[in-house]
Design a binder for these strands. Structure first.
Lengths: 226, 226
DNA sequence: CGAGACATTGAACTGAATCAAAGCCTGTGG
DNA sequence: CCACAGGCTTTGATTCAGTTCAATGTCTCG
């Protein structure tokens, strides 16, 4: 978004290819090697941490424009991985080349920093969800966040957006059991606030939802996409 | 750490001063204006999000070397703030100047990116704590993390480190009630694994603790300090 | 049609929150 | 040097949000 034609060119010039990953497959885990960077071009993916106990925490959902630095992700240790939720199209970059440009071009480096920061803002809010909101508030908040992110990407209609997540994804992202997610979702629907069906999320009463869970979208800033 | 003399010089040259903040005071909130960046030079601080309901989530504890980009923090919206826990010494930089250098010097920009990434790794693990570990596991994990961070900064003795946090800080960071923190802490002490007293955290059985909460320090990478 | 994955519902259980009192330091002022 | 105020910590009793266990239902696709 804050990138002009020339910067886009600069980035495109270090592009080394693209990669297609099928729904459900691993994009990156501790067994992967490689130092490349990627951008999620289309589809949804998730970053997760699996514990010894078998429990899983989804730390973020990746959508169009999300940036992945393999070298960095892999340093996190076992248990961390990124997996495709839907079919996914990735743009690949050589990390070395990218970092060369990145050092040579102030606008570019700022774009990457902005990207990292907006990712972090999401994490802060997500953590607050899990730590200090009730199950229903968490869900309401998460659904509004997701709708808003999709809207910013131009993927949303007036009151709906694509929604490929299953209830167990919600559970693992919100730190809840999937049965409880099911019950809370049902209640939110009975209130006439949201509905999920046919792979879509319908926000039927944005105002009530927002009031209920104290949603303020200012932490969701527009991000550069390339 | 990956910075050589020249880069340090480069950074020092955009330093605009320092600032002292007393324990308990606000370093930054939505009422602050300013675009500067800062480095925490000494002391402990916390980044937190306050909800309408009065509940608070501490998203991170800042210690020596933590980097704060005011411009970015302030964009997060109401409710977010950074506050000093102990007396704190900050180094100030002009954001504009820093970003100029940052664009002009590849090593420097990489240092800042590394900083952001290592911050993010902490958030991932912290989220897993809150979402998928039991209260006692969370505490055990957090205490090991804290000890390890302090050790990497050279602040720790063989089995102890400084620990200025109160039980209510732990509660707000882990998403628990302070009473429950108290009970769990007591149990961890009775097991002979840790003790907190006189402003210090004593790790009395690192191995057992680590085994108990599935602690793996690889997400805690050494970071550049300036 | 049948298998597997996902969703729904109900009942019993439990980890952690809340509510309610005391206890215990530490610094401050008389 | 003692008293006592305010901020922490500790402990106990009670309640509740969310988990677990156990079925049953439903969709989709080969």
């Amino acid at each position: 978004m804050p990138l002009d034609h020339e910067e886009l060119e600069a980035i495109q010039s270090v592009r080394t290819g693209s990669r297609h990953v099928r729904a459900g497959e691993v994009i990156l885990d501790h067994e992967t090697d490689g130092e490349e960077c990627m951008t999620l071009f289309s589809g949804w993916a998730m970053r997760q941490r699996a514990l010894e106990s078998g429990k899983v925490q989804i730390t973020s959902f990746l959508m169009a424009g999300s940036f992945i630095d393999a070298g960095f992700e892999l340093a996190n240790g076992d248990g961390y991985s990124i997996e495709a939720i839907t079919d996914v199209e990735l743009c690949l970059f050589s990390a070395a080349d990218l970092k060369k440009r990145f050092g040579a071009n102030a606008v570019l480096s700022r774009a990457l920093a902005t990207l990292a920061q907006s990712e972090e803002a999401l994490l802060f809010e997500h953590m607050t969800d899990i730590g200090r909101r009730s199950a229903m508030e968490r869900l309401a908040h998460f659904l509004l966040e997701t709708y808003t992110r999709q809207k910013m990407l131009g993927m949303a209609g007036n009151d709906y957006c694509p929604f490929p997540l299953r209830q167990h994804h919600l559970a693992d992202a919100m730190g809840l059991s999937f049965e409880h997610v099911n019950r809370m979702l049902k209640e939110l629907k009975e209130k006439g606030w949201v509905a999920i069906s046919g792979g879509r999320l319908y926000i039927m009463d944005f105002a009530s939802l927002g009031r209920y869970c104290d949603f303020d979208d200012s932490y969701l800033r527009p991000r550069p996409i390339f």
